[in-house]
């Protein structure tokens, strides 16, 4: 499958011109993304682009502070799973939404419960700011959390320079196989 013209893709991605809180991802970005992926067929890496609209953009800085506080815990938790190649939190400049973007090995649905296992506290702290969040705490409502993540995850496969090397394999090659 050939890549679509990047200019078209960027035009769809860029919310410039929208009013803070207006772009809800699930309403304004419809079929433009259907079939789009920068991923190679058969590559081991997959991605979650989790769109989390804030209840109130005025709370954006408070959420950022929460993220900073949880940073080390999130880092250690993700490292323990040995499936996550990279993860980042990106706040919309308008404060309307937080994006949680993760590149990981395998399939999304199969490892989401692992995030519950190691990151439930972090997601509890984040989701109190999020419009339409599932019931909390996450550990007590794991299935609702999984359904929410699947619903809020926007497509867009990730390009990888190492399409056939998993995180575990890379760590092994680097001499840091861990446990």
């Amino acid at each position: 499958m050939g890549l679509p013209a990047l200019s078209d893709a960027h035009a769809s991605l860029d919310p410039t011109g929208t009013v803070a809180g207006q772009w809800r991802g699930d309403t304004v970005l419809p079929g433009a993304w259907d079939g789009f992926s920068a991923a190679l067929e058969g590559q081991v890496q997959n991605s979650i682009n989790l769109y989390l609209p804030l209840k109130n953009p005025a709370q954006a800085m408070s959420l950022v502070a929460t993220l900073k506080e949880a940073g080390q815990q999130a880092h250690e938790a993700l490292a323990s799973l040995r499936t996550v190649a990279s993860a980042r939190f990106v706040m919309e400049p308008t404060g309307s939404a937080l994006w949680v973007m993760t590149v990981f090995d395998g399939d999304m649905g199969s490892y989401l419960m692992d995030f519950v296992g190691v990151l439930a506290d972090v997601f509890d702290a984040i989701l109190v700011y999020i419009d339409g969040a599932p019931p909390l705490p996450v550990r007590e409502h794991a299935q609702a959390y999984v359904d929410f993540v699947i619903r809020q995850s926007k497509p867009g496969g990730v390009h990888s320079a190492m399409p056939d090397i998993t995180v575990m394999e890379a760590l092994r090659l680097a001499g840091r196989p861990g446990r």
Partner: peptide, 11 residues
């Protein structure tokens, strides 16, 4: 078991 595997260990 305790060998390298994806995700939470012993799961």
């Amino acid at each position: 078991r305790g060998g390298t595997a994806a995700g939470i260990q012993h799961n």
